[in-house]
């Protein structure tokens, strides 16, 4: 029996049509509309002017740097923290199931709700984070008001929300490692740290690569948490590309907003596809 007959291409059609119309077509059109001034009904071609404005205006070009900072720090922190959390949860503790559930649950909570809660927790005078620091004799900071640390405060909140997912991905990787490697190593007198470095780290690399890619892409596209924590008015310190796109859209500059979208698309493609290739090439076969 002909495989092509059983596994008909028609099965693919509905998914391709919906995805093509509402994702691929807009993606292709964005390359064109980013070169225009347009208002959904009509457009006039202006070449690369939108990109020139995007990269010369301070409030907009700073968003590129903030986006990179946000993506690198959120994914970096998740990669490291989740690794140790997973090691801890994979050791012989009785409350493993409970702890895993507690760390994972924030991922299911609405991002806006998390933003609202952390804004309150990070309140400069009344918030309980500064209150706790005061008990320890440390002078608190204005987490979201101080432009030097505002983005970092949002990054911390993002890590709080997402570290549980990264942890369970690592846990799946850890559990697939054959225990006999560790037994052999400890017979040879390898210390716990040597075992982590020489057995766990190389063998958990596929899981680690998933965590890196997932959290990096998520960080590059991040919008709603930043939006909620800055009540929709991100400053130069907290504006990322996705919020710059919304800002320009709300202000009626549709060409500029589309150009911002294209900048994000190009940036993600330029970083993530090579990064993924590189990471996969380093996995142990």
């Amino acid at each position: 029996m002909n495989r092509k007959h059983i596994y008909s291409g028609w099965f693919l059609l509905p998914a391709i049509v919906v995805f093509g119309i509402f994702f691929l077509l807009p993606m292709v059109m964005s390359l064109f509309f980013s070169l225009t001034v347009w208002d959904f009904d009509s457009w006039s071609f202006i070449g690369l002017e939108n990109f020139r404005v995007f990269f010369s205006e301070r409030t907009l070009n700073v968003s590129v740097l903030n986006t990179l900072k946000y993506a690198v720090l959120t994914s970096g922190l998740k990669v490291v923290l989740a690794f140790f959390l997973a090691l801890f949860l994979n050791s012989k503790i009785k409350t493993k199931g409970f702890l895993r559930a507690v760390a994972f649950f924030p991922n299911l909570v609405s991002t806006i709700a998390v933003g609202i809660t952390f804004r309150a927790l990070m309140h400069p005078s009344k918030g309980i984070i500064n209150g706790a620091l005061e008990l320890l004799g440390i002078v608190g900071v204005d987490w979201l008001g101080n432009p030097d640390i505002a983005l970092l405060s949002i990054i911390i909140t993002d890590v709080w929300k997402g570290v549980g997912v990264a942890t369970v991905i690592y846990l799946a990787g850890l559990q697939s490692i054959d225990r006999s490697y560790y037994e052999a190593a400890s017979l040879d007198g390898a210390s716990r740290w040597q075992q982590i470095r020489d057995i766990t780290l190389p063998l958990v690399r596929p899981a680690m690569n998933s965590v890196i890619i997932l959290s990096f892409v998520g960080g590059m596209r991040s919008f709603d948490l930043i939006w909620a924590m800055t009540s929709g008015v991100p400053t130069a310190a907290t504006n990322v590309i996705a919020s710059a796109v919304y800002g320009q859209y709300a202000a009626g500059f549709y060409g500029l907003a589309t150009a911002g979208n294209v900048v994000m698309l190009v940036l993600i493609s330029l970083i993530v596809f090579p990064l993924q290739k590189f990471l996969i090439s380093r996995e142990v076969q």
Partner: peptide, 16 residues
């Protein structure tokens, strides 16, 4: 599709 962000405004254009 797993990596790339959706193009927001052209999506509105298509929907319109």
């Amino acid at each position: 599709g797993l990596m790339v962000p959706p193009a927001i405004l052209p999506t509105i254009w298509v929907m319109q």
